[in-house]
Simulated assay, not measured.
Amino acid sequence: MQFGVFTVGDVTVDPTTATAPTEAERLRAMLRIALKAEEVGLDVFATGEHHNPPFVPSSPTTLLGWIAARTEKLQLSTATTLITTNDPVKIAEDYATLQHLSGGRVDLMLGRGNTGPVYPWFGKDAREGLPLAVENYHLLRRLWREPVVDWSGRYRTPLQGFTATPAPLDGTPPFVWHGSIRSPEIAEQAGYYGDGFFHNNIFWNIEHTEQMVRRYRERFEHYGHGGADQAIVGLGGQVFMAETEAAAKRFFRPYFDNAPVYGHGPSLEEFTESTPLTVGTPDQVIERTLGFADYAGDYQRQLFLLDHAGLPIEVVEEQLEILGREVVPVLRKEFERRRPAHVPSDPPTHRTLVAAGPNAPHHLVEPARALAPTGVGR
């Protein structure tokens, strides 16, 4: 099972000091987080993509390219690559380039994002978000799998005799996760193609997460990719840890109360009860995280959000030390102990996809056994 961290890259005032990092300081802090993640034995670093304040990661491949040059094992990913407002041609070429530079240590999570105004900034209509995501992804699959593409669609100019450069490393496209917190159509799309499904459940209750993951698993099996329990699932989570629960809550409470994404809303206690946020001891984080599989099934990737709400980078690095040294080793052991032998323990990587050969299902534009579902374009 893969464990890692993701960042949303917010620039937030530290409520205990009334100071905020500069954009440059925040970007450098994200780089430090990635290096520390590899140092403490985590598997994945993922960055969001945002084009509005107070967030800074507007260019994920630039950030991940720098991290690739400074790391050896860390899997590089995104917490959202905007499939709606980015041109599929640019996604194909940017992430293929990152594949080559990182030696294949890259996958990406596609999503629509949660900022409505971003659509007109890039000449798109937010009301067309779902069909735009479907069409753009199908074009992306073709660009990564066909040497010459002739294409016309609804949302961009046609392509005639187009070849994306560079081609994917070893002729093998990156593995794709479809990220969604609220759209069953995206769970359907992930199941149709046999891709991964990432439910960033940091704001959602158990019942909603269970429903979304179940739909994806059912559609994964329906389209002939394997049993429902073999579908590739990832989950999010938020934690803050200290030696005692009281100490963790005492330190974290001012950050929670003033956070731009959930501050001034439900109390810390209400939020930890209804969502996966865990503020307490490492043992409490272990117990809570192991419980995710009780409603989501055995899954393959767990990402934690640690660096948000104005927490100082030194504190985040301390949290990474605790996560990597005390929490993740126990989670690895316990998740694998309970996992049935026929259920994948890890998501596909470049190495495993290459080993599967050029005729493996991953290389198909259209799934061989799929029946065209309503709402998924061809």
Rank of each mutant, 00 (worst) to 15 (best):
P348S: 04
T47Y: 03
P367T: 03
L353W: 00
L353G: 06
V56E: 13
L305W: 02
P174T: 10
Q300A: 12
L130G: 14
P173N: 03
S267A: 08
R26K: 13
V118G: 05
L235A: 05
R325Y: 01
L74S: 02
L320V: 10
Q2W: 01
E336L: 13
T157I: 02
D87M: 02
T47G: 13
P367H: 01
D14E: 06
E270T: 07
I67T: 08
F252H: 10
L132R: 14
G4P: 12
V330R: 15
P312C: 05
E210C: 10
T349W: 02
E321T: 12
E39D: 14
T244R: 08
L27Q: 05
D10T: 07
W151G: 07
H264I: 04
T19Y: 01
P120V: 03
K124A: 10
P344V: 05
Y262I: 14
I286V: 15
P131Y: 00
L130D: 14
R351P: 06
A126N: 07
A79L: 11
Y193A: 04
E221K: 05
L268W: 03
Y137F: 15
Y216E: 10
P53L: 08
G171N: 11
V89G: 08
E326G: 05
V149L: 13
R217Y: 03
R156A: 12
L331W: 01
G224W: 04
Y295A: 12
P174G: 06
R250K: 14
G291T: 02
E49L: 08
P120D: 06
E318D: 15
V376M: 07
L82W: 00
W151L: 06
T275W: 02
L290F: 03
P173F: 00
H362Q: 12
T16A: 15
G237P: 06
E23Y: 00
V316Y: 02
D10N: 06
G297E: 07
A133I: 03
T157N: 08
A341W: 03
L110C: 11
G297P: 11
D150T: 08
P266R: 07
N201Y: 01
T62L: 15
Q302S: 09
L110K: 03
A296L: 05
G236Q: 08
R351I: 10
E218C: 05
G161Q: 11
A190M: 12
H199C: 13
A190D: 11
V8L: 15
Q2D: 15
H362G: 14
N52Y: 02
